[in-house]
């Protein structure tokens, strides 16, 4: 099958400063102060059309950075990402305004996603239907419960219908019925041969939903392969990690963090 996303030696480095002064110095004389932190380091893998790739790893391992780079939101420091098709990142809260009503928010967010006037008119009823909000759609979002907000956000995002979809922790909200409905929608995408990246800490969701898994640890790609193999290793790792005392867990994280730091001096 054809490859839809190729990630080649991608590294993302952030400059870290201890004080505002250091930041200012670095702006005037680049490279003299502050230190580098590699959020992700030299990651390469290729994904085919129809793959559902789970990105797993403990907090701070660089999953979100990687998904943002694939989504084109953050440029990589070095390396490149070759993407075949339109990418959309599903993020629940981006673009919802609490002062506007549900309807207004739908139009607002569709405008931000670059929809034409005609396309907005076409998708509006679909979104309202999917969101299950009923008459609340005419109320300002500030009156919504957090579950209602995420329903609206998700409903808007799934109608975008891109070729490559990145779902960053988006299915961990809402009640069970809505989560099931959302998963069904995702499965429909999967069947239609779309590439999906799925970032989640919910291992049972990842297991049932993904065909491949990329395990990120401390900014490096530790393992990439079919779900059953990588998932087995990852669950074992998580079990072992949970058994460690808090001090040992911290020591483990510090070791990883130190590897990612590069002091200039």
């Amino acid at each position: 099958m054809a490859e839809s996303v190729i990630i080649k030696n991608v590294t993302k480095t952030y400059r870290m400063y201890k004080t505002k002064g250091e930041q200012l110095k670095d702006l005037v004389l680049p490279g003299k102060s502050g230190s580098d932190f590699n959020a992700i380091e030299d990651i390469s893998f290729a994904v085919e059309k129809g793959d559902v790739v789970g990105l797993v790893g403990i907090n701070g391992s660089g999953k979100s950075t990687l998904s943002n780079i694939i989504g084109g939101i953050v440029p990589p420091t070095s390396g490149e990402v070759i993407v075949d098709g339109e990418v959309n990142v599903i993020a629940i809260n981006a673009g919802l305004n609490s002062q506007l009503t549900g309807i207004e928010n739908i139009e607002f967010k569709c405008l931000l996603m670059g929809y034409s006037k005609e396309r907005i008119a076409k998708v509006m009823p679909e979104i309202i239907e999917f969101s299950e909000l009923g008459d609340f759609i005419y109320q300002p979002v500030k009156k919504y419960s957090s579950g209602m907000k995420s329903k609206l956000g998700f409903a808007i995002s799934v109608t975008a219908d891109p070729d490559i979809l990145i779902i960053d922790e988006a299915l961990s909200v809402g009640d069970q019925t809505f989560a099931d409905k959302s998963l069904a929608k995702m499965n429909e995408y999967k069947k239609r041969g779309k590439t999906i990246f799925f970032v989640s800490h919910n291992l049972s969701q990842v297991r049932s939903f993904c065909t491949k898994i990329a395990w990120i640890e401390g900014g490096h790609l530790r393992e990439f392969g079919p779900t059953n193999i990588v998932m087995k290793n990852y669950s074992e790792f998580i079990k072992k990690y949970h058994k460690l005392s808090p001090e040992d867990q911290k020591a483990f994280r510090d070791k990883l963090a130190n590897r990612r730091k590069q002091n200039n001096k």
Partner: peptide, 10 residues
């Protein structure tokens, strides 16, 4: 910026 960060916005 954060409002449009995840989209292809001019």
């Amino acid at each position: 910026y954060t409002m449009v960060a995840k989209m292809n916005f001019p």
